[in-house]
């Protein structure tokens, strides 16, 4: 299986007056389809910028990013939006559910947007929220909310599931459940799951680990013996 995601010499710089910040400094790496990939780094390492670029939320200064046969780096805004809409599933640290929509509706918000979504209720059932379809986010626990968020991401049959510190706001146990869910999705549905985190404990569950520091990729490590969540403790 060839590389699915490819970063080649990607640079991202922010200019603030005379000050130039190299958020991403000549980054190159590849990720294969169906993997669980963990991007690891401390705050300010540039992992969020990377996520943004991969998720089509931000443009890069130079370099190429390809996803399958799509060259994201040359997409315009509209194409990026379509890309996000059709190919990317986001899971945020703070769930980012729409408070005024029920769990079901929060999923429907994406299913009504695209052509061939998974049925919203089914997805929610698959993440274990079959009973809470009609609850508002505020009525759900953090883990439940994150499940809804994952369901929302999954419902659109994304090519990549991008997760930004998906457990960052959750307690340990809940976090584990969420990670498990993510791993399962990758294993069962062959979705590329990219998890951005500063928690090195997640390394063990990943098929590929990209370590970042100060805007550069320190290492790309392939882990052929990824453990299931149950086996990992931190």
């Amino acid at each position: 299986m060839g590389s699915f995601v490819r970063f080649e010499n990607v640079n991202k710089t922010y200019k603030t007056g005379d000050f130039v910040l190299h958020a991403l400094d000549n980054i190159s790496f590849e990720i294969e389809k169906g993997e669980v990939c963990v991007i690891l780094g401390q705050s300010g390492a540039g992992k969020t910028t990377l996520l943004n670029i991969l998720g089509g939320m931000d443009t890069l200064t130079s370099g190429t990013v390809t996803l399958g046969d799509k060259k994201i780096s040359s997409f315009n805004k509209k194409e990026l939006t379509t890309f996000r809409r059709e190919d990317i599933g986001f899971v945020f640290q703070f769930y980012n559910l729409i408070p005024n929509l029920t769990a079901l509706e929060n999923v429907e918000i994406v299913t009504q947007m695209i052509k061939k979504p998974l049925p919203a209720d089914k997805v929610l059932q698959s993440v274990g929220l079959g009973e809470r379809l009609n609850n508002f986010p505020a009525q759900l626990s953090g883990g439940e909310q994150q499940r809804v968020a994952i369901a929302r991401a999954l419902a659109k049959r994304p090519k990549i599931l991008l997760c930004d510190e998906p457990t960052g706001a959750l307690d340990y146990e809940t976090g584990r459940q969420i990670l498990k869910l993510l791993q399962e999705q990758s294993r069962e549905n062959g979705i590329l799951v990219v998890i951005v985190t500063h928690n090195s404990a997640l390394v063990d569950m990943a098929d590929r680990i990209i370590r970042m520091k100060s805007g550069t990729v320190v290492s790309v490590q392939k882990n052929d013996n990824a453990l299931s969540i149950e086996e990992i403790e931190w």
Binding site: M57, T81, R84, R85, N96, I98, I109, M113, R152
Partner: peptide
């Protein structure tokens, strides 16, 4: 702001 940003991330077109 967050909600809007989220919607954008999810892939809402500008008009939407």
């Amino acid at each position: 702001c967050r909600e809007i940003a989220t919607l954008k991330v999810i892939g809402f077109y500008q008009n939407e």
